[in-house]
Simulated scan of single mutants.
Amino acid sequence: MSITQQYALDAYRARQHGEPPVPAPGAQDWQVMRELRDYQQFRAVLAGRPAHGRLRRALARRLRPRPTC
């Protein structure tokens, strides 16, 4: 059975039992990846390693002096 068929079956069963519909496959993939990245950064900070990623780059841009033309 493919993932699409399983989703259709689960959605049908949920509708028959009056339950909320199940999320479509892949609907939460990006959120899961963001949470995994945040968790890894959190663990790095707890271990005493510097955090990496978007926040650090944004702070570096803000703190870097701009060249004057």
Rank of each mutant, 00 (worst) to 15 (best):
H17S: 09
P23A: 09
P21S: 13
R49M: 05
A14Y: 05
Y39W: 07
L55E: 14
P25N: 01
R56C: 02
H17D: 10
D29L: 13
R37Q: 10
Q16A: 08
M33K: 15
A8R: 08
Q41T: 02
P25C: 05
G53L: 01
R34Q: 10
L55V: 14
G48M: 09
L36S: 09
P50Y: 08
P50H: 11
Q41R: 11
Q16M: 11
R49K: 11
Q6S: 02
W30R: 15
D29M: 09
Q28T: 14
Q31A: 15
A47L: 09
R54N: 07
L46H: 09
L46Q: 15
D38M: 10
R34N: 06
G53W: 01
H52P: 00
P21I: 00
L9W: 04
Y12N: 13
D29T: 15
Q28V: 12
A44G: 02
P23F: 10
D10T: 00
V22M: 09
R37P: 01
H52M: 05
L59M: 10
G53K: 00
A14G: 07
L36R: 11
P23S: 10
Q16Y: 03
L9Y: 02
Q31S: 12
P23G: 12
A8D: 07
R54V: 05
A14Q: 09
F42R: 12
A44E: 03
L46N: 11
V45G: 06
Y7H: 12
R34P: 00
A11D: 06
P21V: 00
A27E: 14
V45S: 11
P20Q: 04
A44F: 00
G48P: 05
D29A: 15
R56M: 04
Y39D: 08
H17T: 01
G53F: 04
V32D: 15
P20I: 00
A47S: 14
H17N: 07
R37D: 11
E19W: 06
G26E: 07
P20R: 03
L36Q: 14
P23V: 07
A24D: 08
R43I: 06
P20H: 05
D29G: 06
P50L: 02
Q6N: 03
A47D: 13
L59T: 12
R13V: 08
R37C: 03
D38G: 04
R34E: 10
Q31C: 07
Y39T: 06
P23N: 08
Q41P: 00
Y7A: 05
E19F: 03
W30D: 15
R13S: 05
R13D: 09
W30N: 14
E19A: 03
Q6M: 03
P20Y: 02
R13Q: 09
F42L: 10
A8F: 01
G26Y: 05
P21W: 02
A51L: 03
R43G: 06
Q41G: 08
G26A: 07
R49E: 09
V32N: 10
R15E: 08
P25T: 00
H17E: 12
P21N: 07
A14D: 14
Q40M: 07
